[in-house]
Design a protein around this nucleic acid. Sequence first.
DNA 1: TCCAGACCGTCTGTTTCAGACGGTCTGGAG
DNA 2: CTCCAGACCGTCTGAAACAGACGGTCTGGA
Lengths: 190, 190
Amino acid sequence: MSTVRLSTTSYVVLGLIALRGPSTSYDLKRAIGRSVGYFWNFPHAQLYSEPKRLEEAGLLELDEEDFGRRRKTYSITDAGLAAQRAWLAEPVNAHFELRDVAEIKLFFNELAGPEDIARLAKDQITQHERRIAEYEQMRQRFGDVPDVATRMITLELGLEMEHTALAFWRRVSARIESGEFPTAEGRPQR
Amino acid sequence: MSTVRLSTTSYVVLGLIALRGPSTSYDLKRAIGRSVGYFWNFPHAQLYSEPKRLEEAGLLELDEEDFGRRRKTYSITDAGLAAQRAWLAEPVNAHFELRDVAEIKLFFNELAGPEDIARLAKDQITQHERRIAEYEQMRQRFGDVPDVATRMITLELGLEMEHTALAFWRRVSARIESGEFPTAEGRPQR
DNA sequence: TCCAGACCGTCTGTTTCAGACGGTCTGGAG
DNA sequence: CTCCAGACCGTCTGAAACAGACGGTCTGGA
């Protein structure tokens, strides 16, 4: 039990175990895939190393099967819960971070042909429609399960972001149809 | 001149040099700070190593001052421009990625007190208002400069995302005022 | 009995990362 | 003319994060 530096990812693990109760890394992986993963993604390998660290720090408790698969189940300790609560009480000074390749390409539209941008917009529309359907399905499935209903609130934001982006790309698409984007040719570079 | 693996960051560098003309790493740093940085951020140190790589790959051309500060100025080669165009023509199959600590904390609201969430919402409102003001100022400053006007399009999406998020957090804030969020106490964990 | 497919975990080399650090130049106050 | 603040500019380092290949295990049903 030593002190370690906790990252946001640590708190995702801690919080999820606090909410779900005792969980294996694999449990977490799946749980994250349909919740927090949408606004904080990271490789699943970390879900095996991170709990180990947290256990060594005394924030999680390990229970290992002594037969068969020897699954490792982690549960939260009082110290862990305290740490999580303290973190939740800390102010967040950060703005969200976005990583969007599509926007980069759009930004560079002067270097591309209009047909590239048209394709880009079309693909993005599909992406966002798909994502909206995904979210909508979740909402229907869990929207009225009382136990998780209050977790669903982030879904609302996700959904609204999607609709905003979708509307944007639809507009881009329309503007191209009407020939509004200039061609790459005829523009000097350097 | 060897073949290297190009990352999105490489194309940001390439594209920016194509748009702006010959640039130093420091130029790029500043340019990114007020444009692409908003949807593709990375440490500025990479702006010193990346162009070097790209130069070795024959996609950039190096011109070094032979006096004083010995600034290194990079310009794009034909091969570089071709690579950039090819990339722009490639389909984007990825959805944007969001990293948002505030949403994580909101997701874990059951473990926190309502006053924590109130604080969180309040802070986020400030964050987004600030960012909106920032964007708005840019729009006013560059909105009608013909040379950059077409780059401004991503600003629109940024602005709309901000407004969506702002509205969301305002609603969260209102819902707390009306005592809608449950307290952490009284909920079992594990 | 056997196999497909889900379940579960580890490992590896490469990138990315934050951010401390250090040097250089310019304008203007004294 | 000298000196200093503040902008300008670049490098380096150890620690984290990363993708994703790989390998093993279990269960149901053909």
